[in-house]
């Protein structure tokens, strides 16, 4: 009885949580006037037009923005994987001067509001002509500025037995080889977590893209969606919903296939 009540409660909660999303999917197939009249999920009159009309609503087809977002995401994933794993190896396995203070600085950058660096960064990048390129967003990732991922990887490397390194060292391997041939292959789960989180966060990022990408041909999907709201106002909800779904699908897929790593990653940085 108790357990039945609990399941009823959980199903109700899950339903309330997920209903808006399902309704948005349903509404993206509805003609505009019906969106405001049908609160249910049954589509009485299917309108396929929302997708093509949204796809071509801006100066470039939506595929362009998807491509821009994809390039940006790939660059950021690559940057984070390489730079954060190198830094993590140093913090987890090496003994060096000022380690403590550097480690503390690294942890504090996780908590630093981005706003305090965005203005000078913008000035700096605009002076070297990088506004309206992807570099202002990718280059910081190449320079290991995402402390969250360094920390996640440090936690993971600490869990790898040190015997492995020692054995390799006795065989004459230096740190670069230990890192590349022993640690990296063993930390694939942490790398996967980093890749998936970077994917979702970069794909969803709006603030930095809004600031750096002002030319329509450089828009990411998020900025494009915002431009779409500006251009049509609230007159074309169907098409707006359709393109919203298009921008959410990649995140949803990343969540679906990467959930194991997301749960593990977030739990280990929080707990152990």
């Amino acid at each position: 009885m108790r357990s039945l009540l609990k399941h009823a409660l959980l199903i109700l909660g899950a339903g309330v949580m997920i209903y808006p999303l399902l309704w948005m999917v349903a509404s993206s197939f509805r003609p505009n006037d019906l969106i405001f009249r049908e609160a249910g999920l049954v589509i009485s009159q299917v309108d396929w037009n929302n997708y093509p009309s949204g796809w071509n609503a801006l100066s470039e087809p939506f595929s362009k923005y998807l491509m821009n977002s994809a390039i940006l995401v790939l660059g950021c994933i690559l940057g984070n994987l390489v730079s954060c794993s190198m830094a993590a190896y140093a913090f987890a396995r090496l003994d060096f001067k000022f380690k403590k203070i550097m480690f503390a600085l690294m942890l504090m950058t996780i908590m630093l509001p981005i706003h305090v660096i965005i203005v000078p960064q913008y000035i700096m990048f605009s002076q070297i002509g990088w506004v309206n390129t992807f570099w202002p967003i990718i280059v910081p990732k190449l320079l290991a500025t995402d402390g969250f991922f360094i920390f996640l990887m440090i936690q993971f490397i600490r869990g790898i037995p040190k015997d492995m390194d020692e054995a390799a060292r006795i065989d004459g391997a230096g740190h670069p080889r230990i890192f590349l041939q022993i640690i990296l292959p063993l930390m694939v789960p942490a790398l996967a977590t980093t890749a998936i989180f970077t994917f979702i966060w970069t794909w969803s990022d709006f603030f930095t893209s809004l600031i750096y990408l002002t030319n329509p041909s450089n828009y990411t999907v998020q900025v494009a969606l915002n431009a779409f709201i500006d251009s049509t106002g609230e007159s074309n909800w169907g098409a707006l919903f359709a393109m919203s779904i298009v921008t959410l699908v990649p995140v949803f897929l990343a969540f679906l296939f990467g959930q194991k790593y997301l749960v593990k990653g977030i739990a280990t940085t929080g707990i152990k």
Partner: peptide, 11 residues
């Protein structure tokens, strides 16, 4: 868990 992954999107 899903909404917290989607939540920061413009969509």
């Amino acid at each position: 868990y899903l909404p917290s992954m989607l939540g920061s999107s413009v969509a």
